[in-house]
Amino acid sequence: EVTIKANLIFANGSTQTAEFKGTFEKATSEAYAYADTLKKDNGEYTVDVADKGYTLNAKFAG
C-alpha cells in the first residue's frame, strides 16, 4: 500500500491537502478523480508530479 498526497492549489490562493491510499494505480486514480469533482466550481487544473509520482500538485485555474 502506498499513499499519494494531493496538494490542491486554488485560484484564490487557498490550498487543501488530501491523501489517497491503496496500490499506486488506485491511489493515483482516486486523486485525479477527486480533482475532477472540484473542476465544476474551481475550473480546469494542471498537475505537476513530484516525489516520483507520490505527490501531485494540482493548480486550479479558477
Rank of each mutant, 00 (worst) to 15 (best):
E44W: 09
Y45Q: 01
A11S: 10
G62P: 07
T17W: 09
Q16N: 08
E30Y: 06
A6N: 01
K5H: 10
K5L: 10
E30Q: 11
A33M: 10
T15E: 08
D36N: 08
E19W: 15
Y34Q: 02
A6S: 05
Q16A: 12
D41W: 12
K39A: 12
E44Y: 09
A27V: 03
D48F: 11
K21E: 06
L8P: 02
T15V: 15
K39Q: 08
S14P: 07
A61M: 14
D36H: 07
F60Y: 12
A27M: 02
A18P: 03
A33R: 11
A61T: 13
T28F: 09
S14E: 14
F24Y: 11
K26N: 12
S29W: 11
K21N: 09
K59R: 14
K5Y: 09
Y45C: 03
K21T: 13
K59G: 04
G13K: 06
A11W: 09
T23N: 09
Y54N: 06
K39Y: 06
N42V: 05
Y45D: 01
S14C: 15
E25N: 09
F24A: 05
K52L: 13
G62T: 07
G43C: 06
T28E: 05
G62D: 08
Y32S: 03
D41P: 05
Y34A: 03
K40R: 12
A50Q: 14
A31R: 01
E19H: 12
T55G: 04
I9R: 08
F60Q: 04
S29D: 10
Y45L: 05
T23C: 07
T37I: 10
A31L: 08
L56R: 02
T17I: 12
Y32Q: 04
Y54H: 11
L38A: 09
I9Y: 12
D51N: 06
D36W: 00
K59Q: 11
K52D: 15
A18Y: 14
F10L: 10
I4H: 02
K59C: 11
L56K: 04
I9E: 08
A58T: 09
V2H: 07
E1G: 08
A27N: 01
F20R: 01
I9G: 03
F10V: 00
Y32L: 14
N12R: 04
A11Y: 08
D48L: 11
F20E: 03
L8I: 14
E1C: 14
K59V: 14
V2K: 05
N57I: 14
A6V: 15
Y34E: 02
E1V: 14
K39T: 11
N57T: 13
K26S: 14
I9P: 01
Y34D: 02
E44K: 08
G53I: 02
E25C: 11
G43R: 01
V47Q: 02
F10M: 07
V2T: 06
A11Q: 09
E44G: 07
Q16K: 11
E30V: 04
N12V: 03
G62L: 06
F20M: 01
E44R: 07
D41A: 13
D41C: 15
E30S: 08
A58P: 01
L8W: 11
E25I: 09
D48Y: 11
V2E: 05
K26V: 12
E44Q: 10
D41L: 13
K40V: 12
K59N: 10
F10K: 03
V2S: 05
F60T: 01
E19D: 08
L8S: 01
T3V: 13
E19K: 09
N57Q: 06
K39S: 11
Y54L: 14
L8E: 01
Y45E: 01
S29I: 13
D36A: 06
Q16F: 13
K21R: 13
L38M: 13
K39D: 01
K5S: 07
F60M: 02
A18W: 12
N57M: 06
A11H: 09
